[in-house]
Structure formats: C-alpha cells, structure tokens
Nucleic acid binder design. Structure first.
Length: 299
DNA sequence: AAAAGTACCTGCGCGC
DNA sequence: TGCGCGCAGGTACTTT
C-alpha cells in the first residue's frame, strides 16, 4: 500500500486501536520480512514481547510504533505490503509474513498481520535518534511525539503533510538540480511521501513533463508543483488512498476510492481531462510514466 | 555530491 | 493449455 495516502490510512487505523496496547505474541512466518532487522527472528520476538505501544507515527512512507523500551517497531510496506488488524482466529490472509498479538488498552485481543506478496516491505526494531530540527519526528495525532525518528528512517525528509514541512526550502533545492523533475519528486531525501502515482498526478496538474530538468523550471512553477503535490496527497488521504486491486487495503481490508479521481496514472490511451489528447505511458527508469503529451510538454 | 542503474520478490495478464 | 515476457504502488546499494 505504498504511497503516503495509503500509509497514512494504515497509520490512522493502527492509531485508533493500538495506542496503549501490549504485545503478547509474535509469530514470524517468513523471516525474509525481517531482512532489515539487525537480529534474528527469535531476538525480534523476544524484544517485542511484553512491550507497550506508546504511539503510532509516520514520516513519508515509514511507520513506527514507539515502545516503552525507548526503541520502536518500524514498518515499511514496500510495493505490496498490507497491515491488517483481525480478531484472533479470523480466516487466514494469504501472504501473511508476520503476526503480532496485542491486548488493547481496553482489554481486547487483536492480531496484527503483516501481509506482503512481494516482500519488499519490512519490519524491524530500531533505536530512536534526534531529528534535525527539534520538532516532532513524525505525524502522530493521537499522542504528542518527541523529536526522534527511527535511525532507519532518519535519512528521509519531512513529508508534504508534515506541519514542519518547509516548502520554500524544497523549492530552493529543486531549483539547483539538473535531474528530471520526476526523479526528484520521488527522492525521499528531498521531500517524502510521493511515489509513482502521485508524482504523475502532481505533474499532470502542474502541466510539467517528467523529464524537465528541475533547474530549468521557473520558481513560481516549482512552488505551484509543490502545492499541487500537497493537494493531491490531501485529497487522496480523504478518500482512503488509491486501490486498483486486492493489493491495497486499510487495516480492515477495505479499498480506498482515490483511483476514481486519477487523471494520468493508469489512464494510458484515455482522453486527457483537460484537452482530450490520449494519455501516454512511457517506459521510464524501470517503471512507467503517465502524462498528457499535449498539456505536459518539455521546454 | 549527484545521477543512474541494479537487486530484491511474487503473481497477474497478455500474446503466441 | 502452457510458456515467456512485461508489468506492478519502493528502497537500498553500487557504480560512474
């Protein structure tokens, strides 16, 4: 469930259930999900057992649960990860890789299942390190967060929906770079949360070609691009993210509805909503780029 | 430092 | 029906 709106949908679902919950069981069905965890699966399970969840936080596409051990359980959904909350004994979910049992603050039993077809996702425990600016490390509306982030997510910039996101600083960075604008939108070290869908949507709204060198774009248009990107993410969060198939679900296994509002991504050969020219898909950087060849011309 | 390419995985739909 | 190919929402690592 990859980009910011999908991850935020999951974060909110976890936040509603797991703040104050205690971990009382860990089952690692496929150790490959722990490939970014520094210890063994056994050590992972022992470290988590008995710990209490203090908050559910997110920066960009990274999720973490600060624990009463002063460390955090970190999760990333990769390309095909889901986190589902089930009552124990609920019918099995295909591709379940790790399960955690919780006792909630109001004494209910919940099973968290990390489901991931392709296993690009990950779970790990990690130390928390102080982030650059002293502001809260990530987004955690249920519980105030201190200024720390997991070490494994500390190289990621603040995301577009973070209250401390500095749009003007990002514009200044983009204005110095020669790379194509889409590559930079996808660079989580510059601004985080955008993936292939929302990059294409942001560029469509901004009438920019994906390979336009960033520093050749007038700064007012860069500002407009950042604002469009933020708006796209906000609108997608409101609709529970984008779901095309069985892959992308919230913690209850339900789909989001933003796909109805996509203008470029996945719309190859369909008429552009602005000018009716067929949307084109180019092979680009080992993936695809969707754009209107009329509205979004390189200059 | 920045840019670009590759590896990591499974499964689906398509054309032959 | 079966097979090979291209394709899929991401990140980390390597090389230039």
């Amino acid at each position: 469930m990859p980009e910011l709106p999908e991850v935020e949908t999951v974060r909110a679902g976890l936040g509603a259930e797991l703040v104050g919950a205690k971990i009382d069981g860990v089952v690692v069905l496929d150790p490959r999900l722990l490939k970014r965890h520094p210890g063994s699966p056994k050590q992972f399970a022992e470290e988590l057992h008995g710990r209490t969840v203090l908050a559910v936080a997110r920066r960009g596409k990274f999720l973490w649960l600060p624990l009463d051990s002063d460390r955090a359980l970190v999760g990333h959904l990769g390309m095909s990860g889901q986190i589902l909350l089930r009552t124990p004994g609920y019918v099995e979910d295909r591709h379940t890789r790790v399960t955690l049992q919780f006792e909630t603050a109001d004494n209910r039993s919940i099973e968290m299942r990390f489901v991931d077809q392709r296993i690009f996702g990950a779970l790990l425990t990690d130390e928390l390190v102080v982030s650059e600016d002293g502001n809260p490390g990530g987004f955690s509306p249920e519980v105030p967060l201190d200024s720390r982030v997991p070490n494994s997510a500390s190289h990621i910039a603040r995301d577009l929906l973070d209250p401390f996101f500095d749009a003007e600083a990002v514009v200044q960075t983009l204005a110095t770079r020669s790379a194509g604008i889409k590559r930079l939108l996808l660079d989580q070290g510059i601004l985080s949360g955008i993936g292939n869908i929302y990059a294409d949507e942001s560029l469509w709204r901004s009438k920019l070609h994906y390979d336009q060198p960033a520093k050749s774009i007038p700064q007012p248009r860069l500002r407009e691009l950042v604002a469009h990107a933020k708006a796209v993410l906000e609108e997608a969060v409101e609709r529970g993210g984008t779901s095309f198939d069985e892959q992308y679900k919230n913690v209850n296994g339900e789909s989001g509805y933003f796909s109805q509002l996509l203008n470029a991504y996945g719309r190859s050969d369909e008429p552009c909503a602005r000018c009716s020219t067929p949307i084109r898909r180019d092979s680009w950087a080992n993936r695809g780029s969707h754009f209107c060849p009329n509205c979004q011309r390189a200059f």
